[in-house]
Simulated assay, not measured.
Amino acid sequence: MPTDIINHIEFPVGDAEWSRQFYDAVLAPLGLSLVISIDPSRTAHGGARHGFGKNGYPSLWIHQENGAKLPIHIAFTADDRATVDAFHAAALASGGTDNGAPGIRERYHENYYAAYVLDPDGNNIEAVCQRA
């Protein structure tokens, strides 16, 4: 079992397959991968679910759901600045939209190195390294 404060996060997406492919590529530089996919016939809401994580534990879940959604913001920890750069490149190559190129965000602090992208549903996804 993970020892992090947050056990898992789940949010709806408009196209679960497209989002699965997007997150599979975008999360790879951060050391996260697809852990489990659940067929729509086995879900309470009738849409596919995909869980991503490390060490076999799915900490980030997406699920198919139609209807209006409000965008969310998720920030993933990156071990170094090169990983932030790789995250950003993978997101753009996978159909994401740039929402802030990799760089220092001094408004937070002098070592806050981050990149922001919008996923296929307009959610603001960030990778951040807070080390020099």
Rank of each mutant, 00 (worst) to 15 (best):
A25P: 00
A25L: 10
A25D: 13
V26F: 04
L27Y: 10
L27V: 01
L27N: 04
A28F: 08
L30K: 01
G31P: 06
L32N: 07
L32Y: 11
L32G: 01
S33V: 02
S33E: 11
S33G: 15
L34T: 15
L34E: 08
V35W: 01
V35F: 07
I36L: 09
S37T: 05
S37Y: 03
I38H: 09
D39L: 10
D39F: 04
D39I: 07
P40W: 15
P40H: 13
P40L: 07
S41H: 07
S41Q: 13
R42L: 13
R42W: 07
T43S: 05
T43M: 10
T43G: 11
T43K: 01
A44F: 14
A44P: 05
H45M: 08
G46E: 07
G46V: 04
G47H: 07
A48E: 06
A48I: 03
A48F: 11
R49G: 06
R49V: 03
G51E: 04
G51K: 03
G51I: 09
G51F: 10
G53A: 15
N55P: 09
G56C: 14
G56K: 10
Y57F: 10
Y57H: 10
Y57M: 11
Y57W: 10
P58L: 07
P58H: 08
P58F: 08
S59V: 15
S59Q: 13
S59H: 05
S59C: 00
L60M: 15
L60V: 08
L60C: 08
W61Q: 05
W61M: 14
I62K: 01
H63N: 10
H63A: 05
Q64P: 05
E65F: 09
N66F: 04
N66Y: 12
N66G: 02
G67M: 11
G67E: 06
A68P: 04
A68Y: 13
A68T: 14
A68W: 03
A68M: 11
K69L: 12
L70C: 00
L70T: 15
P71Y: 12
P71M: 00
I72P: 00
H73A: 14
H73D: 14
I74R: 05
I74Q: 04
I74N: 11
F76T: 08
F76W: 07
F76D: 01
F76G: 04
T77C: 08
T77P: 03
A78W: 02
A78K: 04
A78L: 03
D79A: 08
D80G: 12
D80E: 11
D80K: 07
D80T: 12
D80R: 06
D80Y: 12
R81A: 06
R81E: 02
A82N: 05
A82P: 00
A82H: 10
T83G: 04
T83Q: 12
V84A: 02
V84C: 00
V84R: 03
A86I: 01
A86P: 04
F87S: 01
F87M: 09
F87D: 00
H88T: 03
H88Q: 07
A90N: 10
A90C: 03
A90E: 13
A90L: 02
L92W: 08
L92A: 06
L92M: 11
L92G: 00
L92T: 08
A93M: 03
A93K: 15
A93W: 05
A93C: 11
S94I: 02
S94P: 00
G95Y: 00
G95K: 06
G96F: 03
G96A: 05
T97F: 02
T97I: 15
N99H: 14
N99C: 12
